[in-house]
Design a protein around this nucleic acid. Structure first.
Length: 734
DNA sequence: GACCAACCGATTTTT
DNA sequence: TCGGTTGGTC
């Protein structure tokens, strides 16, 4: 059993304690995933359970994929039959089997945020509630958080009614649920909540699952919310073979319902639970672990654990004081270049920020210096407009009753359908019981209730949809999608788009979508995949500095980590302090802990004395977290005379040690790094190397047009080829 | 329905 | 500062 030999004693214990409740407190970098996967393999190899008797739950699809792969590696065979997946995927799988008990068909659709907002918008309009004062998006959040808390409309405590629409949110929630039923739809929250409802109302069904899942394994338990907690507790009732793995110090999702309390309370929930601590860290150097430990020790409510390493101390954590955020970016860029010139790789480095907007100054600086970087996160593939539109078409082909999909694309591409026509159709649909928008649309068109351009366009539209609906069962999804995109005029719309650059990107995305669909045999299974898996594994750039939020970095590790913006108000973030006070501060501290523990060999923390915020410069004080780091594991570095003046005079403890003053020859007030001739008057020359503030360096390839419309086509080294208006280009000779 | 000016707001984000 | 949304105009 070589895979067991690779584990240290507590890890082995966590794998082999199979009976009863087990809490594995897995500190950062302590080999959590090995334990999880080995435990699953162990249970199966020992014959304690059949694959379908094991339930393994994760939060993200990425984690689920990784777990599946690694278990298959250990077992040397496919993990077929195992219930491995995200909370939502597993709950959906179960709920579909019992959908009729919550007034739905087993093929119910799963709504995303967009759909939810669309539906709530209608409800608000019907009730005459002003959407400007009470935005549908806000209500989506309110209802989602109630569902996360496990509350049906009648279970929402009245003191949680809030002030949305004068306290009518609960009533709106009730109406929303009724409409979901009529639409044969569930939102994400429903998947778990309604699953739980089924189990509560039909104990015999619950008992079936309790017996089936002999072993339950939960990853990232510190991030579970109330419904997830109740869902798990229901399943574990009886045998109580539940093993949860997590680290309360890394709970950073309180703002979306995660209850650290779940992991802190585990031993009370499951009396006699075994508690196993994984404390040997295999990731970071001693100094980095010291810094992390010292910081997190300032939190009150936590399971005490101390990470240690057999590794050496390594370099002390560097703390840079800079003049402003631009200098901060210059210094990081300089350090990155120094690292690469010593033979390191760009991909060893990561910049982790508290707020996504912080990446801006880094991107600007990196573009200028032609340092390759990749921003991780942002809009997910399936959240892009063109993808959602395409999917709405597909949904409508598969399920003509999908009113929300119809509303989405009835006028995309433009068919001359405005509010007027749409309302006519809506009214018609509402007037007749059990009539979908699509059916109503057909009636309206045939009866001549719609006139003008919209009429002929919609006639074609209906005919097209009917055609696709006939093909949906027999055609491969990817081919049907291609046909739809062509026939609907969507592709043409993009080809004619004035914004060529963007339209091209969108067309590429659609191609990517079609390609992704080739793996699926039928449309419904593809749609199920899409609604539950909002991410697509991004192509990782092996040669670029990674930039992302600390949240997005959870679970990752890098050789060198830069943590800019350690300032009061930013990290800890002011809003967190304002909204949840001490609790918020503790979560911010955990976030900083996560950030620090991402580093393997080198950690550089920065804070600026002045930061651009909403356009203007704001003075910033160093983060209180800096003062919570241990003196003997850190080294202060000041970068400008100005900063020295500030901190030297300010008498900040630990600051102003004068170590390694101003090492870069960067100008204090961020003028362009290289002297350039202003060439606006002399005109641009073909082939000359130029510099652009946004796109960086490039070479002039050709010209187009004359006079005011004269354009310059420049091949930028980083940003690719761009067409610029000569009068506005503001290029300088490099 | 397209276009543009004015306006507002601005952590973190998965499923 | 910037970008997304809205309201007015044609």
């Amino acid at each position: 059993m070589t895979y067991l030999d690779r584990l240290n004693p507590p890890q082995k214990q966590a794998v082999q304690t199979t009976d009863g409740a087990v809490l594995v407190l897995a500190g950062a970098g302590t080999g959590k995933t090995s334990v999880l996967t080995s435990r699953l393999a162990y249970i199966l190899m020992q014959g304690f359970a059949m694959p379908n008797q094991v339930l393994a739950v994760t939060f993200t699809n990425k984690a689920a994929r990784e777990m599946t792969e690694r278990v298959e590696d250990l077992l040397q065979r496919p993990a077929a039959g195992m219930w491995m997946g995200t909370f939502h995927a597993l709950a959906a799988r179960i709920l579909r089997r019992h959908a009729e008990l919550v007034n739905r068909d087993s093929n119910f659709t799963i709504l995303d945020m967009d759909d939810q907002a669309r539906l709530l918008k209608q409800i608000l309009a019907d009730r005459g509630i002003d959407e400007k004062q009470h935005p549908a998006k806000t209500l989506v959040h309110i209802i989602s958080s109630w569902k996360d808390n496990g509350w049906l409309p009648e279970e929402v405590p009245t003191d949680h009614a809030g002030k949305f629409a004068g306290g009518r949110a609960i009533e709106l929630y009730r109406e929303y649920q009724a409409r979901l039923e009529r639409l044969n739809a569930c939102d994400f929250g429903d998947l778990l909540l309604l699953n739980l409802v089924v189990w509560k109302r039909y104990p015999d069904i619950a008992a079936r699952y309790q017996q089936q899942f002999k072993y339950i394994l939960v990853d990232e338990y510190q991030d579970t919310n109330v419904v997830q907690y109740l869902w798990l507790r229901m399943l574990a009732m009886g045998h109580g073979n539940i093993c949860v793995v997590g680290d309360d110090d890394q709970s950073i999702y309180g703002w979306r319902g995660a209850q650290v309390g779940n992991i802190l309370r585990f031993e009370k929930d499951y009396p006699g639970a075994a508690v196993i601590r994984l404390e040997q860290n295999y990731r970071s150097t001693g100094h980095i672990l010291n810094a992390a430990a010292s910081l997190i020790a300032h939190n009150e409510n936590r399971h005490d654990k101390t990470l240690w390493t057999e590794d050496d101390h390594g370099k002390p954590v560097e703390i840079h004081t800079t003049w402003d955020d631009r200098e901060e970016a210059r210094i990081v860029a300089g350090e990155v270049e120094a690292h690469v010139s010593k033979g390191g790789s760009y991909a060893d480095c990561a910049i982790l920020v508290r707020a996504a907007a912080q990446t801006r100054s880094f991107e600007e600086q990196f573009v200028q210096q032609a340092i390759p970087y990749q921003v991780v996160g942002g809009l997910k593939f399936y959240e892009r407009k063109e993808i959602r539109d395409a999917l709405a078409y597909l949904r409508l082909a598969a399920v003509p009753q999908d009113d929300l999909a119809l509303e989405r694309i009835i006028n995309t591409p433009k068919r001359g359908v405005g509010d007027g026509a749409l309302n006519t159709i809506r009214d018609r649909s509402r007037g007749l019981l059990q009539t979908s928008l699509f059916e109503a649309l057909e009636l309206c068109v045939n009866e001549g209730a719609i006139t003008g351009k919209a009429k002929t366009n919609l006639q074609d539209f209906v005919a097209m949809l009917k055609g696709w609906q006939l093909l949906v069962r027999d055609w491969p999804p990817s081919q049907l999608m291609e046909k739809i995109l062509e026939e609907s005029g969507y592709v043409q719309m993009l080809q004619e788009d004035k914004n060529k650059e963007e339209a091209k990107g969108r067309l590429d995305n659609l191609k990517e979508l079609v390609r992704a669909m080739e793996e699926y045999d039928d449309v419904p299974s593809f749609l199920e995949h899409v609604s539950l898996v909002m991410d697509v594994e991004p192509e990782e750039n092996q040669r670029a500095v990674m930039m992302m939020t600390v949240h997005a970095a959870k679970g990752l590790e890098f050789d060198t980590v830069f943590l800019p913006g350690f300032e009061e108000g930013l990290f800890p973030h002011q809003r967190s302090l304002n909204e949840t006070g001490e609790k918020g501060l503790e979560e911010e501290r955990r976030l900083a802990y996560v950030a620090i523990t991402r580093a393997r060999r080198r950690l550089v923390i920065l804070h600026a004395s002045s930061r651009r915020l909403y356009g203007s410069y704001q003075p910033s004080m160093p983060s209180r977290f800096l003062a919570e780091l241990p003196d003997d594991s850190i080294e202060y570095i000041q970068n400008t005379t100005a900063a020295m003046r500030t901190w030297g005079a300010g008498g900040q403890g630990g600051y102003g040690s004068g170590y390694g003053a101003r090492r870069s020859n960067a100008p204090l007030f961020g003028s362009a790094p290289i002297e350039m001739d202003d060439m606006a008057e002399q005109g641009y020359e073909l082939g000359s190397r130029v510099f652009h503030d946004k796109f960086g360096y490039g070479r002039i390839k050709r010209f187009e047009g004359e006079g005011n419309a004269r354009k310059i086509i420049v091949a930028f080294e980083k940003a690719g080829e761009k067409k610029l208006l000569a009068s506005l280009a503001n290029l300088r000779v490099a």
